[in-house]
Amino acid sequence: MTDNGSENGERAEGLEIDVDDHDSSLYRVLSSAVVPRPIAWVSTRSEEGVDNLAPYSFFTVASVEPPILLFAPVDDTDGLKDTPRNARDTGEFVINLVTEEFAEAMNETSATLPVDESEFDHAGLERADSTAVDPPRVAGAAVAFECTLHDLVDVGGSTLVLGEVRHVHLADSVTTDGTIDVAEIDAVGRLTGSFYARTEDRFSLERPP
């Protein structure tokens, strides 16, 4: 028996997936392996004036110059979800950072609500006025990025929403000497199913030259 749990030096067999022969979705595999994922808690305002707020964990930085953030909602069976539709129609949205104090409220905003009902009200969240865009921020969010729509891109059953950052809000609690301090950001990451991760356990590695 070797260290990897196999006999005669042979590696133990694992699960192999041939995508061409795989009948079901790879969602569980992808969402379980690509972890932890930051959560874009996106606030938008519909053309009818309804404030929408929803979390999306397919989220990352797409570009630094210009500053572009990207999140990728999976489409509904009948088309775009409220968030990408509002972003398309109004050209604006806000990405709020989900920290541990907002984890429960974030989960509440993932509920399926009628189009004329606001997740802010459903989750009992306060709105804060934005500076450069019309949709509100989540009051008390440690970090918020006000964005204008850069592009919408259809990719299979999802829509990539790319937003150019126009204004950034940083709470005093996440800055040190006027600079954002990653050690002070207790962000919540998505794993899979009902599981999430904290970022309180950090370590450092020096990048080689």
Score class of each variant (00 low, 15 high):
Glu146Leu: 12
Ser110Cys: 15
Arg88Phe: 00
Asp129Tyr: 07
Gly163Asp: 13
Val161Thr: 14
Ala132Ile: 04
Thr44Asp: 08
Val153Tyr: 06
Asp129Gln: 08
Glu104Lys: 08
Thr99Val: 13
Glu126Thr: 01
Asp116Leu: 00
Ser130Arg: 02
Phe102Cys: 02
Gly124Trp: 03
Ala128Leu: 09
Ser46Trp: 04
Val50Ser: 01
Ser110Leu: 07
Val138Glu: 01
Asp121Pro: 00
Ser43Val: 10
Ser158Asn: 07
Pro38Asn: 11
Gly140Asp: 10
Ala139Phe: 06
Leu113Val: 03
Val35Lys: 10
Ala103Tyr: 15
Arg85Asn: 03
Ala87Arg: 10
Thr131Asp: 15
Ala139Arg: 02
Val61Ala: 12
Ala105Met: 06
Leu113Ser: 05
Arg37Phe: 14
Gly156Ile: 07
Gly157Cys: 02
His150Pro: 05
Asp134Leu: 01
Thr44Ile: 03
Ala40Gln: 12
Asp76Arg: 14
Ala139Glu: 14
Glu164Ile: 08
Thr83Asp: 01
Leu149Gln: 04
Asn86Gln: 11
Ala72Arg: 08
Ser110His: 13
Gly156Glu: 09
Ala87His: 07
Asp134Lys: 10
Ala132Met: 09
Val143Ser: 10
His150Glu: 12
Ile95Phe: 04
Leu80Met: 06
Glu119Trp: 05
Val165His: 05
Ile68Tyr: 07
Arg37His: 15
Pro73Tyr: 04
Ala54Val: 06
Ile39Asp: 12
Leu53Ile: 13
Leu70Asp: 05
Ser110Met: 11
Pro73His: 08
Ala141Cys: 00
Ala40Tyr: 10
Asp89Gly: 05
Ala105Asn: 03
Thr112Glu: 14
Asn107Gly: 04
Gly79Met: 01
Val74Gly: 02
Thr60Arg: 04
Glu119Ala: 03
Ala103Ile: 13
Asn96Val: 08
Ala139Met: 06
Glu146Gln: 12
Ala128Ile: 07
Arg137Asp: 04
Ser46Met: 09
Phe58Trp: 09
Asp78Phe: 13
Asp51Ala: 02
Asn96Arg: 15
Pro55Ala: 07
Glu47Arg: 12
Ser118Asp: 10
Asp82His: 13
Ser130Met: 05
Thr83Gly: 08
Ala111Glu: 15
Trp41Gly: 04
Ser118Gln: 08
Val168Gln: 02
Pro38Trp: 08
Leu97Val: 13
Asp116Val: 00
Gly124Val: 02
His167Pro: 02
Leu70His: 04
Ala87Val: 02
Thr109Ser: 13
Pro55Tyr: 11
Leu80Arg: 10
Leu113Gly: 09
Ala123Cys: 09
Pro66His: 14
His169Thr: 07
Trp41Thr: 08
Pro67Val: 06
Glu65Thr: 14
Asp78Ile: 14
Glu48Thr: 15
Glu108Pro: 13
Phe145Asp: 09
Gly140Pro: 07
Val42Tyr: 01
Phe120Cys: 01
Glu48Ser: 11
Asn107Ile: 04
Val64Leu: 15
Asp51Arg: 00
Asp89Lys: 03
Asn86Glu: 04
Leu149Arg: 03
Pro66Val: 14
Ser130Trp: 03
Leu152His: 05
Asp75Lys: 06
Phe120Ala: 00
Val94Tyr: 10
Asn52Gly: 01
Glu146Asp: 13
Arg37Met: 15
